[in-house]
Amino acid sequence: MSDNVIIRTENLCKYYGDKIHALHNVTAEIQRGEVVVIIGPSGSGKSTFLRSLNLLETATSGKVFFEDVDITDPKVNINIHRQKMGMVFQQFNLFPHMTVLKNLTLAPMKLKKMSKADAEEMALTLLDRVGLKDRADAYPSQLSGGQKQRVAIVRALCMSPEVMLFDEPTSALDPEMVGEVLAVMKDLAKEGMTMVCVTHEMGFAKEVADRVIFMYDGEIEEVGTPDEIFNNPQSPKTPQFLKSIL
């Protein structure tokens, strides 16, 4: 297998009962340094797929390889691998009882045994890059949605992950705040971060994505460069979907 592949899934299936096939035989690869955007109608399995990558969702069958390790093997300590997979949620999921700084330093201090001083210095540097250094001592409830999501991105970055997973990071935001979060994500992409991103922001996909995965009914319907997907789709369902979200 190419050593440039960071995540690979093999025949991933997720069934709820007999009827609901949230995922059906999904086989995919994510290359190092690549930005992959996942699009598809509601209920097509985008979140389920993304959350299967760090095992927040346990697949019914199939395998997930992360850096060539089968992390679906129950003997594997998933916590170690999750440290290298940052995740950003639609609902931010910041820890409301901690200041921004504490949100950022908790995991590095507990898991990487970083000193408080080192962890805070790193957190402040990263916060500065998203323009929120002055909010370090605020509590999440004192931040706007856009600020919350930028903090959430920084929280994941504080673990120095190999890959970042985004599940509709801008969908819970007021329209005027979408831009600031997308800007941070574009910066990340420019720096070469490996990103897997579920989003409805087609502008972002066209501009930043190396590849776009179009999911339909729990399966990958089509994969291609943004140009292929948006301008020359192979499946008739692709333009149908794209038209529907305009």
Binding site: L56, G86, F89, N93, L106, L111
Partner: peptide
């Protein structure tokens, strides 16, 4: 909210650490 547990676990904290902190 279940999202809190997920956020903790996604950072690599184990179940007990996420519970406690």
């Amino acid at each position: 909210n279940a999202g809190q547990m997920e956020a903790g676990r996604s950072l690599g904290l184990n179940y007990a650490q996420t519970m406690w902190h």
